[in-house]
Design a binder for these strands. Sequence first.
DNA 1: CGATTTTGACCAGCGC
DNA 2: GCGCTGGTCAAAATCG
Length: 280
Amino acid sequence: MEPTCVDTSLNLNVIPSQHIDLAVLVEELHRLNSEKKRLTETLNQVCENYDALQRHLSQLREKDIEKEEVPLHKRKDCMNMFGISSFTECSTITEEESFKRPRNNNNNSSKVSKVLVRTEASDTSLYVRDGYQWRKYGQKVTRDNPSPRAYFKCSYAPTCPVKKKVQKSLEDQTILVVTYEGEHNHGNDQAEITLSSTSQSERQAELVPISSAMVRSATSPSVTLDLVQSTVINNNAQKSSIQKLLIQQMATSLTRDPNFTSALATAISGRILDHTNSME
DNA sequence: CGATTTTGACCAGCGC
DNA sequence: GCGCTGGTCAAAATCG
């Protein structure tokens, strides 16, 4: 018996009109093409903005290093410029530079990163899923913000010194401000950039860089990014990871679209049927 | 029953 | 020294 090779390419012109409504399919493809073009443009725009922010941050860091002799209380004002009011900045500074008072001086080299996370306005929980395992050890209402601040320790490894604080933004209740202190002294495969499954806990906010959160559609799968991890990755790797991620996200969005899936299935089955008929 | 969360108490730094 | 504030502790409660 001669092996049959099925051509799975979508040459829609040869699909018999009785199997599918060609016009609808072509229209759908045009729509998807224009959407793809639009998403590509948005992605490029996001990447450009990201690059610009990275450059700006590097410049600010260089300036900060130059000012190292400036007394701490004067630098406080400078650090306020990095505050959440911009809603676009994810800053990574050393603990020495942070304006929190040093309680444990045995960890001078630890880093402080601030990450903004978009969440549902109705969601009052302060849980952010970022791939690590956290144990809540306190909650406080601070003077400058009526929303409570939650304190977490990394419980993935008993010796891990990393802590994080989570508090809703004063200006936008849908934004969670997550402050990480220290660096993980253990690996964690979950902490890599992953597509998240929303089934685990719907109460948990997902760590999404604000720029990505802005462009993602309501029905598309959400993306979990560990920005603490990403701060140690070089810019190119980081950028390409984000690009891959967004491409994956777009692909998943397409495959989740029932119209697209059914059209694709019809096209393939029609093509196979056509091929079978021609062989008889 | 162990792990996690909640929450009031406590501690330490800072400004007055 | 005192009060205010942010951060941490630890016992009790809750959850799986």
